[in-house]
Structure formats: C-alpha cells, structure tokens
C-alpha cells in the first residue's frame, strides 16, 4: 500500500500524461485513417470487376497503392516519413508527429477492412435498391454503408487496437504515450515497476475499447 502511494506519487503524473497522449494519438489517427480509408474501400468495391461501376484501371491502381501501403513495415515508414510529417504538421516529434505516420500506415488497412465489410452485404439488396431506381451514390450510403454498419464498427475497434500497438513503436521516435514510457523506463533504465504498470494500463485500455466496440456493434445490429 505504502509502495503504491510512493510509486504513484513519483510516476502518477507521468503515467496519466502517457495514457492521455496514447488516447489522443490513437483516436486522432483512427479518425483520419477512416476519413481516408472509407472512400478508398468504397471505391475499390464499386470499381471491382463485378462491382456497380467496374473500372479496371482505377481498381488496379487503388489495389496497388493499398498493397504497397500495407507491405511497408511501420517502423521504416515512421522514419521515412519524417520529412513529410514535418511538412504536414510542422514537427516530427510528439503526439502530432506520430499521428501522420500512424494515419499513413492505417489508411490502407482501413480501406481493406471497409472493403471486407462491404463484401458481406447481400448482393440481392444491391439489386433490390437498383430495381427501385437508386443511384450509385444512394446505393453506397443507403445500402452498402448502412447495412454494413455493425461490421464497420467491429472493424473500427480492430483498427483502433492495431494503431494502439503501432503507437508504442512511434514512441521510439519521441512520440510520447504509454509505449514510449514502457520502453524508456523499463527497457533503457531497468525500472521494471514503471514498465509493468504502463503495460497494465495498455491492457486495460485495449479491453475497454474492445468491449465498447463489441457492445456498440451488437446494439445497432438488427439481425438476430
């Protein structure tokens, strides 16, 4: 008990700041990754050979971009993007500096997740919507996105947790956050207690996010 008081007296502020930094970093990058990833995922679905508006070239080029984005290891992307990050947000350090590489690496991942969710929509529903005179745009937002919403939300919690893992790596280039604390104190200074507590905080955060995602998906899903 005494140990706890003295431990949090000494490191409480640091860990609270780290938790907050991690949350901000991951929430922002998930958000931006979806802003970029949803249109790409939709476009890939629509332009596919058996899609609503088959466009061979667009489909192939988008597929390449997404695959290239997904195949570069995050740690390499992180360093390689430093000039780009500076140009976009003015710095390559801190939470702001970490968001850019996180978004760049997550957007292609999100695009594939979205594509996967949309593929689960019954083609019969697309045909039915067409038979009532729905335009392509109406089919996208009234059928594809609406019908796959529970699946999209499940995908979002997976993305969030994946980015959570990446954000620890971003710590190595001075991004801050819980991962950064675990590495700096635990790995570099042999302060096992700080490392263990930051890892426990990570575990709690992941559990909370997964639970919220699952509950939300289940609540809005009207299929039995």
């Amino acid at each position: 008990m005494e140990w706890l008081t003295s431990f949090f007296g000494q490191y409480g502020g640091l860990l609270a700041q780290g938790t907050w930094d991690t949350i901000v970093m991951v929430v922002l990058s998930t958000l931006f990754a979806y802003i970029i990833g949803i249109p790409i995922g939709v476009l890939v679905t629509i332009t596919a050979p058996n899609g609503l508006k088959p466009r061979r070239i667009t489909y192939m080029v988008l597929g390449w971009i997404v695959n290239i984005g997904r195949s570069i290891p995050f740690i390499i992307l992180l360093v390689a993007l430093i000039p780009f990050t500076r140009w976009i947000v003015g710095t390559s350090l801190g939470v702001r500096g970490a968001v850019v590489p996180l978004v760049v690496s997550a957007a292609p991942f999100v695009a594939r997740m979205v594509e996967q969710s949309l593929a689960e929509v019954d083609p019969g529903l697309i045909e039915a919507a067409q038979s009532f005179g729905a335009s392509t745009w109406q089919i996208i937002y009234k059928v594809f996105l609406k019908e796959s919403l529970p699946s999209l939300i499940r995908g979002a919690s997976i993305t969030f947790i994946t980015l959570f893992g990446y954000s620890a790596m971003a710590g190595t280039v001075g991004a801050g956050g819980l991962g950064d604390i675990a590495i700096r104190y635990g790995y570099q200074r042999y302060q096992t207690d700080v490392m263990v507590v930051s890892v426990i905080l990570c575990i709690i955060l992941v559990q909370v996010i997964q639970t919220i995602g699952d509950r939300l998906a289940r609540r809005i899903d009207k299929r039995q």
Binding site: D122, G124, I220
Partner: peptide
C-alpha cells in the same frame, strides 16, 4: 423507369438494418 416498375424477389431482399416501415419508405426516400 425502374422506380415506376415494382419488383419482388425469391429471398425477399429486405434491408436488415431497417424496420419494416423504413423498408417500405425506401423507394420514396430515393
């Protein structure tokens, strides 16, 4: 033209995330 011709299907093709009422209003929303 499509809106002026009704169609029903073997597997009903109802929108699963919409209520019965919202399914029927769908063609009107368009």
């Amino acid at each position: 033209l499509r809106a002026s011709i009704g169609m029903i299907f073997q597997n009903f093709s109802l929108f699963q995330q919409r209520t019965v009422l919202q399914n029927v209003t769908f063609p009107l929303e368009l």
